[in-house]
Nucleic acid binder design. Structure first.
Lengths: 111, 111
DNA sequence: CCGTATCCGACTAGATACTG
DNA sequence: CAGTATCTAGTCGGATACGG
């Protein structure tokens, strides 16, 4: 069945989608995890040197709640926690590609 | 020729694209103008009753600078100014659709 | 009709220090 | 290793009043 969008509801729909990767670091994190990569907390820290621990954990938690990231805890000492994208998270890739493609179009319309 | 993205540059690329419709009202405005609609300043105000004049003009100006909106001034009294999307602005539609489609996928992965 | 100018509260992210 | 807690500066949007 089809949805019938009004300008307002369509905008709200997109905003909902955007909110899920809104936050200064979520895209960077996602791109590090695309392709099925599984990284530890400390590996993400090293991969993104300018992020603080606070921001890293905050963004990861929100992404987990939103269902784009999976948190994998290994019960050991010392602690080991890994992060990976969910299937749904991986599925964002094509949409982001579309955005990149659109940004590239600008050259043809600018002067 | 192909670009070779790193996680960081890809994220920056998407962020650049996102910035262009970032701001609380830009998407709403765009959805009102999709399909070639041409609207006057006052018509946009009526179409989006909760926006203030300040925000409306601010978002429109930025969108104009960024090249997604075209400003059409008719030299008359009383003043008449119309706004429309550029070709590039219209070209955003598919990418936003991809985002909407992705958001819909969530049902299949949630429980 | 189509804007501009100013003030102000809310939210975000960074710095920093500390813990199981 | 993998977090938590607190404080603060900067940014964004809303309210309101005024101008060509």
């Amino acid at each position: 069945m089809e949805k019938n969008w009004t300008p307002v509801t369509a905008a709200k729909g997109v905003e909902q989608a955007l909110k899920i990767f809104d936050g200064k670091w979520k895209l960077v994190i996602m791109f590090h995890l695309f392709g099925g990569q599984v990284l530890r907390f400390s590996e993400l820290e090293k991969a993104i040197p300018t992020i603080t621990q606070k921001m890293l954990i905050q963004q990861l938690r929100q992404m987990e709640v939103d269902g784009v990231v999976r948190r994998i805890v290994h019960a050991q000492a010392p602690p080991k926690v890994e992060y990976a994208l969910t299937d749904w998270g991986q599925a964002l890739c094509p949409a982001l590609d579309a955005l990149l493609k659109w940004a590239d179009l600008r050259e043809n319309h600018d002067r």
